[in-house]
Design a protein around this nucleic acid. Structure first.
Lengths: 342, 342
DNA sequence: AGCGTCTCTGAAAGCCTTTTCTGTTTCTTT
DNA sequence: AAAGAAACAGAAAAGGCTTTCAGAGACGCT
């Protein structure tokens, strides 16, 4: 808890310090360190040694000012808390972090005003580009076409088709899920999912229905739209068993719902997966591996979405911009809650 | 999916553009926009209008180069994925975001090499300070005393007592938890917790024991160290009920463990909270509110830890540095799983 | 010896802003 | 009306780096 006024920390060495120590001009020092070819090997050696002795690190701020590119991007998320932003953010951080790019993180807390504020602040810092990460897959307002830097939208697509958006393929995910259940020999498949106000819920249901139709089947009952909660999973399952006791698989709109579904199935004496297969969505580890049996779930490959967004931003900064909504495939992670009928 | 080489985006306006449009010198324009007093009101007006017309935003990069301070800090996390980093990160982002500071996010993925790499990159960008966020409360190696900028450690304290670390008060949290159970009239309290390799597990147990001792009581059985999982919660509870059927409260080391504990209690016919009160740790919403009944849990106030770290970094940058480990109090969030004995 | 050709090196400009200092104008005051 | 004070405007430097251009020295050739 000691308190003290900080000592004058030694300023980092500058290029001119290095040049002085090496006995050359600033220009030569710069060229030597940057691998330019107009420096004699011996001179370069001297400069490199001097730089090492002084622990010289070029000032990226000065470099950015000169080059007009700062090597920074802004990552604008609308809810850090949410479990969807994080993997995307990791993917993006990953794709950038490897190279020479640093990421400014800004959380707008879902507030448009704050978002504008952050955009302005980031532009003031001369970021080379922006990634906007949403918390749900419903389209969101564009930041506008007039920005001086490229923008890529991830997870939540922009409403403007001129923008580039990278999203998980929800329809395809619904198909994948049903295909897996069909492959397990299930044919009486019900769907219990979340809030119909979410595009993700509607699109997954649509995909599921399409895959069933392709197999000449239909859903057991109507898609059970409700809430993204365990409670709803239980309630919907109770109704389902009353009306359609023949059901042999339940595709759930989220892992949370799936947990509720499994709980109630067990309560009613149905075995999972022997009598009824259960499948979740989101592949949220805490839930999938803690449930009994472990839950088969659809993973949206969000890290990959983040990486793809970062990569697209890269190429856009380099001059090649795309537009439209690009949907990336999801994948099924198979665990104990779905097994082939014997 | 249209593809096109981007149009030459109009470069952002510079101060000299503004000055030219307003018909004044660059110096005057700067003074006018920064509220310096040596400008006639009328002139200032002209400049302000010109700046507005050109949507002028001062280049923070240039400003940073000149001022020697960039108004940026580095946030170094060791696992973004982890649920502990995120709230801290939010708190820090919050404390900074309000002002003029932007945050560089770096994830070291728990790798010391990568961490060093990021530190170097951040110093090259001339950040004004660093916050290092850990994923568990065990002490971690210091980044060293020789860094040119202040560093604050959050959640995981530095091994070097000369560094400043902000952590949640785990011992105090253990006391708080037991005090709450005592206040509910419980006296036969057991403790089932996670991996004893974690300081958090040991310290919470220590605090719990101390609070019981203050009340002239002891734990029922030994603290049940094991794993941070539902499975362990179930297993430990089974043993507990066999050996100490008189137990009337279980303090759990995490919400996940608590869920396992509650499951098994229900299976064995014990009612929660009537027969046995159950309390968790971490206050992880998905788990606490989805469980039946909703789970009372200890919240580590991580956002506050983040904010405190940001604030401490602020004052350190301003010149007043502290050192040592500062522990912030936790709080009990009461829900249905703990009620007073009637 | 003189010329052209390379190969190195260094001076200087430029990136954008802030700040200091100097110079000019305007207003008071005697 | 003259002198001094105050108010305002602008030139220039600084911050650290890269890059261009010109100059200097070394070398080979006729």
């Amino acid at each position: 808890m000691a308190e003290a006024t900080g000592p004058a920390r030694s300023q980092p060495a500058t290029l001119s310090d290095v040049a002085r120590l090496a006995g050359v001009s600033i220009a030569t020092a710069s060229k030597a360190l940057n691998g330019r070819s107009q420096v004699r090997a011996e001179t370069r050696q001297r400069v490199v040694e001097a730089a090492e002795r002084l622990a010289f690190r070029p000032n990226q701020v000065a470099r950015g000012l000169l080059a007009g590119r700062t090597g920074t991007v802004g990552l604008l998320t609308s809810d850090l808390e949410g479990r969807f932003s994080i993997p995307i953010l990791m993917g993006a951080e990953d794709a950038f972090g490897a190279g020479e790019v640093a990421v400014f993180l800004c959380d707008a807390r879902g507030d448009a005003i704050r978002e504008q504020h952050h955009v302005r602040a980031l532009l003031g810092r001369r970021v080379d580009g922006l990634i906007v990460v949403g918390s749900r897959t419903d389209p969101r307002p564009s930041l506008g076409r007039e920005l001086p830097v490229p923008v890529v939208y991830a997870y939540a697509p922009s409403e403007d088709p001129e923008d580039l958006s990278i999203v998980p393929d929800s329809v395809g995910a619904g198909r994948l899920a049903v295909d897996h259940l069909l492959a397990c020999g299930r044919t009486r498949i019900a769907h219990i999912t979340g809030d119909p106000g979410y595009a993700a819920a509607r699109e997954r249901a649509e995909g599921a229905r399409a895959a069933l139709a392709d197999a000449g089947l239909t859903l057991v009952g109507e898609p059970g739209f409700g809430a993204w909660s365990e409670g709803w999973g239980r309630a919907a399952t109770a109704m389902l068993l009353d009306r359609h006791p023949e059901v042999d698989a339940v595709l759930c709109g989220s892992d949370q719902i799936a947990r509720g579904v499994m709980d109630l199935l067990r309560e009613r004496g149905r075995r999972v997966p022997e009598d009824v297969a259960v499948m979740g969505f989101d592949n949220w580890r805490v839930l999938t591996s803690a449930s009994r049996p472990p839950l088969t779930s659809v993973d949206m490959n969000l890290e990959q979405v983040g990486r793809a967004a970062a990569h697209a931003l890269f190429t856009a900064i380099a001059g090649t911009r795309r537009s439209g909504v690009e949907a990336l495939p999801c994948r099924v992670v198979i665990r104990g809650s779905t097994v082939p009928l014997t």
